[in-house]
């Protein structure tokens, strides 16, 4: 948790950072038609950012950040999501999703209740069924070619 953060300054710097990133990645050879609008937008974004920075120094809006609940759980959940997304490309949708959901459920549940082996075993089956259910709807009914991996 961060107490009394100067959110104007933070927002302003993020905006400025984005403006600079976009500005310096403009391709020199690109024709005017393709870039006139983005250029104008970058300038407007930079202007708003500057105003926010000025306000941050003069009359800042202050706020506590990350002050609700467990930040560790948020970070781990985020990590799970990204691992899941990347794993789909390698393990295939089915395997990656079963693993990710099972692991996430187990991890998140520790906040609320005690776990034992039999509960986990039941959960694993629930998760497999759940993923299989969606997998079938998407591949068979909606014809979405979900990524295949090591097994199928």
């Amino acid at each position: 948790m961060i107490r009394n953060a100067n959110t104007d300054l933070l927002a302003g710097s993020i905006g400025m950072g984005l403006s600079l990133t976009f500005w310096f990645s403009i391709d020199r050879e690109i024709m005017r038609l393709s870039i006139m609008f983005p250029k104008a937008m970058i300038l407007i974004m930079a202007l708003i950012s500057v105003l926010l920075l000025i306000k941050g120094f003069m009359k800042a809006e202050r706020q506590n950040l990350f002050d609700v609940g467990s930040n560790l759980r948020v970070a781990v959940t985020g990590l799970f999501f990204f691992t899941w997304g990347v794993a789909i490309a390698y393990l295939g949708f089915f395997v990656a999703s079963v693993a990710a959901i099972f692991a996430m459920t187990g991890y998140l549940a520790t906040a609320r209740r005690q776990l034992n082996l039999s509960v986990l075993a039941i959960w694993l089956f629930i998760v497999i069924g759940e993923v299989a259910f969606f997998y079938l709807i998407f591949t068979q009914l909606l014809h979405v070619p979900l990524p295949e991996g090591i097994f199928f």
Binding site: I122, G129, E130, A132, F133, Y135, L136
Partner: peptide
């Protein structure tokens, strides 16, 4: 409720594994 859902989904999973054989 979960048990019922579970049995149903297990069946589904079984079909899924056997089908492409």
């Amino acid at each position: 409720l979960y048990q019922m859902v579970f049995v149903y989904l297990c069946l589904v999973a079984f079909i899924l594994v056997v089908m492409p054989a």
